[in-house]
């Protein structure tokens, strides 16, 4: 009974104290000295990234040509890294990608564009160089991915130079293109230094099927910004 009264009194005092006095600084030392398993150079790490690349190649046919340097690919994704050893980690990544191929056009056509939307699952090996602290550090990454094309669109915009016509431009939008292969396979190589990454992706499979007589260039070179870096 006495113990209970003491405890209640103490609690009341605590309540009073809380109301009357302000804790300006409180530090729990033990919480600060726990070694985390999660971190840039720890066992587990998750980060997101944004990538931008240029597809520099050309179509190997005379029927269509790509505009030089204007075909691009943007990606946004998330990766998980598992550190196997100090210099070696394995990664799994999921990303959304939008490839945009710009075709050469006649004078009256403003653009002729092919958009390919993909979801990609990648597995990669990361080899780090040099000792480092809890940072991503400098690395070489080699990976392979499978992607699934979930949306395609061919867009053209043509200027109508006919005063008798009741419109000045004509836009054509074709979707669900059957000449694009849905599954594709790509090899990846990257050099990274913390958040800055230079990327090279090479598609191993043909993006188009036999319905058309050309394939699109397989190489994309670009950069990636690792938001966790």
């Amino acid at each position: 009974m006495i113990k209970s009264i003491c405890a209640i009194s103490a609690l009341l005092c605590v309540t009073t104290f809380t109301a009357a006095q302000v804790v300006e600084l409180e530090q729990d030392v033990n919480q600060d000295t726990v070694i985390s398993k999660f971190g840039k150079n720890r066992k587990h790490y998750i980060s997101s990234y944004f990538g931008f690349g240029i597809t520099p190649g050309q179509v190997e046919t005379d029927s269509v040509q790509l505009k030089s340097g204007e075909s691009t690919k943007i990606t946004y994704g998330v990766y998980y890294k598992y550190k196997v050893a100090k210099p070696y980690s394995i990664l799994a990544s999921v990303n959304y990608g939008l490839s945009q191929f710009e075709f050469e056009t006649a004078d009256d056509v403003k653009y002729d564009r092919l958009n390919v939307n993909t979801v990609e699952l990648e597995f990669a090996n990361r080899f780090n160089f040099g000792k480092r602290g809890n940072t991503i550090g400098n690395y070489l990454e080699i990976g392979i991915s499978g992607d699934y094309v979930f949306g395609t669109k061919r867009l053209t915009k043509q200027t109508i130079d006919d005063p008798s016509a009741n419109h000045k431009t004509k836009k054509i939008e074709l979707t669900g293109l059957t000449y694009i292969n849905k599954p594709n396979y790509t090899a990846h190589a990257r050099i990274g230094s913390n958040k800055f990454v230079v990327t090279a992706d090479y598609r191993l499979s043909d993006l188009t099927n036999d319905d058309i007589n050309f394939d699109l260039p397989p190489l994309t070179i670009g950069f990636r910004l690792d938001f966790g870096g």
Binding site: Q21, V23, Q27, V29
Partner: peptide, 16 residues
């Protein structure tokens, strides 16, 4: 021999 926790408290209260 090391600290587990430490605090700085402002005991002032204008009402008091």
């Amino acid at each position: 021999g090391y600290l587990d926790k430490y605090f700085v408290v402002n005991p002032e209260n204008s009402e008091d």
